[in-house]
């Protein structure tokens, strides 16, 4: 399963729910305002770091760039471009978007 989250974790609880309900080995892709959760110093970063033990965490590069956050990405988070986004979707048999 690929979980896609697009809401800021410091504004909504979508990321928290996705991380709580994702099974071990699943992938979580952070896009749009959700990418802030994968940056150093954010209160949401701790949740992402804990989740990395069981989940693969990805973040969309163009969204990080557009928010001035590219240099602050947490270690262990894999940054992908739009091509990588497509690859993730095709690699998983199911996607869940947490709106």
């Amino acid at each position: 399963m690929l979980h896609i989250v697009n809401k800021s974790a410091t504004e909504r609880n979508s990321l928290e729910s996705a991380l709580r309900l994702a099974t071990k080995g699943s992938a979580v892709l952070l896009i749009e305002d959700a990418v802030y959760a994968a940056t150093q110093g954010s209160v949401a970063a701790a949740k992402v770091q804990t989740a990395m033990a069981d989940l693969q965490i990805y973040a969309l590069g163009p969204d990080l760039d557009a928010r001035g956050m590219s240099a602050r990405v947490l270690d262990g988070v894999k940054v992908v471009d739009y091509g990588g986004f497509v690859d993730l979707v095709t690699e998983h048999n199911c996607c869940q978007s947490w709106l």
């Binding site: 410091t10 802030y36 163009p62 760039d65 557009a66």
Partner: peptide
């Protein structure tokens, strides 16, 4: 306040998402 502080971040590059850099 809250996520609003993110509006003022420097070093923004919006080319990839094809929107105006209003920062």
């Amino acid at each position: 306040v809250d996520d609003g502080v993110y509006e003022l971040i420097k070093g923004v590059n919006t080319k990839g998402i094809e929107v105006k850099d209003f920062s």
